[in-house]
């Protein structure tokens, strides 16, 4: 049985449906990300789990018990907010101790647990600091310690890293992952940053306009995107319009002057999706011309004008000679590197 279960959850504000038909089963100890652009309903879903919003339809269950019947103050979930939401009038230690106080944990045990929690996030010695005298990264750690010290059944993270600069964000990602692995708390992260979702999660829930587009491991969602939205949202991709002709035998998949044996199933107009780093330059394939060539240190970025529209190609800087701007090339890729979807490319 799933640990946390969302069953066809929907949320409406007036006439507007913000989340619809959201079903997800989270296993104990799993790290799940809700990934999507702003306004896709990911924060609303998190708020419903936290209890600050009530679902219009559907059920949320924790270990089989209906969570929506429980007041947010009694759910025992740990939440880290985007703004950290630290209590500005309390020190770091008082912030962390607050949840324990509410649970009437004895004073001596409280002090011990606060110390351990702050040490775990690397803030030993900062007990008496006030939040306004801490850096963004430190505040973030206090918020994390405050959420974890109550031993929450689920940890909810609402864009916790979005206010940090790039370098600090990367450090915190690694640290967050290590802490989560160590204590094994079931975690849900809301983010719009696909790198963050991919580097942290066991599974990603990609959302768009209130609906789930795909649920899968980071690798699955990246390499086998279920929709055009997913392939576009998770990194750069090339979509080529192609057709599958089943009248000839064997059936063929054709895009411009490029043609391969068709995969089973689909027919008619389809979209062929290939990641830029999986495309190489060869002798047979989609004909294209290099428009710009940009050197980016460890790789080259090519913008090409192919017979099926613009294309991006990324090549490792492995010391080999690379084609120059204006050169006519052929784009090639292995059949297993492409995904084929029904319908014409947008």
């Amino acid at each position: 049985m799933a640990y946390l279960e969302l069953d066809r959850v929907a949320k409406q504000f007036g006439a507007m449906t913000v989340v619809d038909g959201f079903s997800l089963a989270v296993g104990k100890g799993e790290f799940i990300s809700f990934l999507g652009p702003s306004g896709c309903g990911k924060t609303t879903t998190l708020q419903m789990i936290a209890g600050f919003l009530d679902p219009t339809r559907g059920a949320i269950r924790l270990e089989g018990k209906d969570l929506t019947a429980i007041h947010p103050a009694k759910r025992g979930l740990g939440i880290v907010f985007q703004s950290y939401a630290l209590f500005p009038h309390m020190t770091a230690a008082e912030n962390v101790a607050f949840g324990l106080e509410m649970r009437n944990v004895p004073r001596s045990e409280r002090a011990e647990r606060v110390r351990t929690a702050l040490a775990m996030v690397g803030l030993a010695g900062y007990e008496d600091r006030h939040p306004r005298r801490m850096s963004g990264g430190q505040q973030q750690r206090v918020a994390l310690a405050r959420a974890l010290v109550i031993k929450p059944s689920v940890l909810l993270l609402d864009e916790p890293l979005s206010n940090l600069d790039a370098k600090l964000r990367e450090e915190m990602q690694i640290e967050l992952r290590q802490i989560q692995r160590t204590i094994g708390t079931t975690t849900i992260l809301v983010t719009h940053d696909q790198n963050e979702a991919m580097s942290l999660s066991d599974r990603i829930v990609v959302m768009s306009q209130g609906r789930i587009e795909q649920i899968g491991t980071p690798q699955e969602t990246y390499e086998r995107p279920a929709s055009a939205f997913v392939s576009q949202f998770l990194g750069k991709t090339n979509d080529f319009a192609a057709t599958i002709d089943r009248t000839s035998a064997p059936a063929r998949l054709t895009a411009g002057s490029w043609s391969v044996p068709a995969p089973a199933g689909l027919s008619g107009p389809v979209t062929v999706s290939v990641r830029p780093e999986r495309i190489g330059f060869g002798d047979v394939g989609l004909s294209a011309k290099i428009v710009t060539r940009i050197f980016q240190g460890n790789h080259w970025l090519f913008q090409c004008d192919s017979e099926c529209g613009p294309a991006i190609v990324i090549r490792q800087n492995d010391g080999q000679a690379q084609p120059s701007e204006g050169e006519a090339v052929r784009l090639v890729w292995r059949p297993e590197d492409m995904s084929v979807r029904a319908g014409a490319a947008a």
Binding site: F13, G39, C40, G41, T44, Q47, L53
Partner: peptide, 16 residues
């Protein structure tokens, strides 16, 4: 659409 995500806390307070 982005307004939806931003107003979520506000809406939450309202719902109580």
């Amino acid at each position: 659409m982005s307004a939806v995500a931003d107003t979520a806390p506000q809406a939450a307070a309202k719902e109580r």
